[in-house]
């Protein structure tokens, strides 16, 4: 035991790389806090706002089941029917955007994945006759891949709400713009993750097909893509969940999803209605999450 001790320098308080990292993180947090000019006191309700606070949180235990307004226009649907309709709008906007995003993301992910180009050419290069073709493909890959990679980076680096601002500014008011605003960044994210999944999928079936003499396109479509498909499906479900949240938020821009009614109720100080909307949104998200989690488990385990 003594020989072991002798070789090691004795430190009263060991500061290793891990602790240094944590200290750096704490320093970064302090710097951000200082730059933003924050103070703990701002987290307490301002004087006079106490009743406002109380009213708001009192709504949590008894959310509205009927309109809170004293006057409701003739022929307005019952409140809960409005809630159900808004939930459906939220879900269907998410579904519409996801369908568009998936349609765009699949070809984009093939074009940006390495294996659709690189491995294909390597396979083709082994055959003497197609060496020329391989050279052409690899040159094309070098030109095309970066272009599409920059394209999908630009698509996903802008937030869906900022896409909504831009699209509404260009085209004016239209329901399709909400679909497009969500679909563009989601297509970018899906394409990036899909292309990584295709590249990281096990290559055994692709190798087997290639050695059996399959053509590069067949190697990709039947050897590589099916091995990545379960992960891609699971990830799509996860993004669908995110799309439900994004579609609810689109309501803040005037589209008829939950966010629209939420902000309206808040502006009218109808706090109990606000809580109904919050519970409706949480219920929608949680039900979808539970469903997709169960599907993912079944799907990946299969």
């Amino acid at each position: 035991m003594t020989t072991l001790d002798a070789g090691l320098p004795r430190r009263p308080f060991p500061v290793g790389p891990r602790l240094r990292l944590l200290l750096a993180f704490a320093a970064a947090a302090a710097a951000c806090y200082w730059y933003l000019g924050l103070s703990w006191r701002e987290l307490l309700p301002a004087t006079g706002a106490g009743t406002h606070f109380r009213d708001f949180f009192a709504g949590a235990v008894r959310p509205a089941v009927d309109y809170e307004a004293s006057w409701v226009p003739e022929g307005a649907p019952p409140f809960l029917a409005t809630v159900a309709k808004a939930m459906w709008e939220t879900l269907s906007l998410a579904a519409a955007s996801m369908s568009l995003a998936l349609v765009a993301a699949l070809p984009l992910s093939f074009l940006t994945s390495e294996s659709a180009w690189g491995r294909m050419t390597r396979g083709a290069a082994s055959a003497n006759s197609s060496r020329n073709a391989a050279r052409v493909t690899s040159r094309m890959a070098r030109a095309v891949r970066p272009v599409f990679r920059v394209g999908i980076a630009a698509m996903r680096s802008t937030h869906e709400l900022l896409w909504a601002v831009v699209l509404l500014a260009i085209f004016g008011d239209h329901d399709f713009l909400a679909v497009l605003a969500i679909a563009i960044p989601y297509a970018g994210t899906l394409a990036k993750v899909f292309s990584e999944m295709i590249d990281e999928a096990p290559g055994d079936s692709a190798d087997a097909l290639r050695q059996a003499g399959a053509r590069p396109l067949a190697v990709f479509l039947f050897g590589r893509l099916p091995r990545a498909a379960p992960d891609m499906t699971a990830y799509s479900f996860y993004r669908f969940e995110c799309a439900v949240r994004s579609s609810a938020v689109m309501g803040f821009f005037g589209f008829p999803t939950i966010g629209y009614y939420l902000s309206l109720s808040y502006e009218n100080l109808h706090y109990r209605e606000v809580w109904t909307w919050l519970y409706a949104l949480v219920a929608l998200v949680l039900v979808f999450e539970a469903w997709s989690a169960r599907m993912r488990r079944r799907w990946v385990a299969r």
Partner: peptide, 11 residues
């Protein structure tokens, strides 16, 4: 994580 960031920030 049930509520989106934008709704939380709005409240």
């Amino acid at each position: 994580r049930a509520l989106p960031e934008y709704v939380l920030a709005f409240l």
